[in-house]
């Protein structure tokens, strides 16, 4: 993977943190949430995850071979894309749909733009957005949480669905939601495990706090204001949907988020507010995926606005 002689512009910093190391660490950190999900929703979850990961790796190798590039499946980025996509799917999704979503994520979301480092949008979220548009019925059919003991219910709604459609179902308590005992996407339910993993990544320095805190903070503020000043609305907004998974593991993707601190804060706040707006006024109950995709689109612009000036450089005109 690493070439013998690296030619690049200074400064050179020696570090053991290579792309594969970071990617594999994130994969490992995400695993507990997947195991929890198997317990919560049953073993079908495992086959969805396996289908996504295997498809992602095989397809990445195939495309790289076709394009005559070096095959880099061992760097873990394809595994991570497959895993994150699976975590964003409904646990009841048929396997073949998960495979189609992964094909879209890798082939269209990533390689159509030139591969790792060139994609505009987070590939896993491209896959999820495609599946939402392609199979909205299957993507919004949920399994009830087994740990909550509601196995018999034929149709089951996530907390956000209950709110959006004012269904006559009782909501799980805030505590239950924090520990993940609720319906939802495969990897989004257990906020505790996701949070612990995020803290580990933060401690290792693989991610910085700016995007997750700005994201969750602005979402929480929005929820409190929208609910007329109820503080528990903030906890509900953060724990009820995919905000935790999205803000820690997907909004922080190096390729598709801004590089400067100011840029990251703008990016995170944008994500939080768009998520809140979609949940409150939009047609869908959940908006994390679209919020991140929209802010991904704005990333080049944010970078342009917030790149620090070199010493002595005249103030640049941003809007050319």
């Amino acid at each position: 993977m690493s070439p013998k002689l690296a030619i690049s512009i200074s400064p050179h910093i020696r570090t053991r943190e290579t792309v594969p190391r970071i990617m594999w660490t994130v994969v490992l950190v995400l695993l507990p949430a997947g195991i929890f999900s198997c317990l919560n929703f049953g073993w079908h979850v495992l086959s969805v995850i396996a289908a996504c990961v295997i498809t992602a790796v095989v397809l990445e190798a195939l495309i790289q071979k076709l394009r005559g590039k070096e095959i880099t499946i061992s760097d873990g980025s394809a595994v991570l894309t497959g895993l994150l996509l699976a975590y964003n799917l409904s646990p009841a999704l048929p396997i073949w749909m998960a495979i189609i979503g992964t094909v879209v994520a890798i082939a269209i979301g990533k390689h159509a733009f030139g591969g790792l480092g060139h994609n505009i949008w987070n590939p896993a979220l491209v896959g999820r957005a495609f599946l939402m548009a392609a199979y909205p019925g299957a993507m919004t059919t949920w399994f009830p949480s087994r740990l909550a003991g509601a196995v018999d219910a034929m149709t089951y709604a996530t907390p956000l669905n209950v709110i959006k459609q004012s269904l006559p179902q009782s909501l799980p308590s805030l505590g239950e939601m924090f520990f993940g005992i609720r319906g939802g996407c495969i990897g989004e339910t257990c906020c505790l495990l996701l949070l612990l993993g995020g803290l580990f990544l933060l401690w290792k320095g693989y991610i910085t706090w700016h995007i997750p805190v700005a994201f969750l903070g602005s979402l929480a503020c929005f929820a409190v204001i929208a609910s007329g000043g109820k503080p528990q609305a903030a906890v509900f907004a953060i724990c009820a949907g995919g905000a935790m998974l999205g803000s820690i593991y997907m909004a922080t993707d190096y390729v598709t988020s801004p590089v400067s601190v100011r840029g990251m804060l703008i990016f995170g706040i944008g994500c939080g507010i768009i998520t809140g707006v979609i949940r409150k006024w939009g047609g869908y109950p959940e908006g994390v995926c679209y919020a991140i995709l929209l802010m991904n689109s704005a990333t080049p612009l944010i970078d342009r606005l917030t790149l620090p000036r070199a010493y002595g450089e005249a103030k640049r005109k941003v809007w050319v």
Partner: peptide
């Protein structure tokens, strides 16, 4: 199972 997105603008 029809892939609905194909009949919509993104498709």
């Amino acid at each position: 199972e029809p892939m609905l997105v194909m009949t919509q603008p993104p498709g």
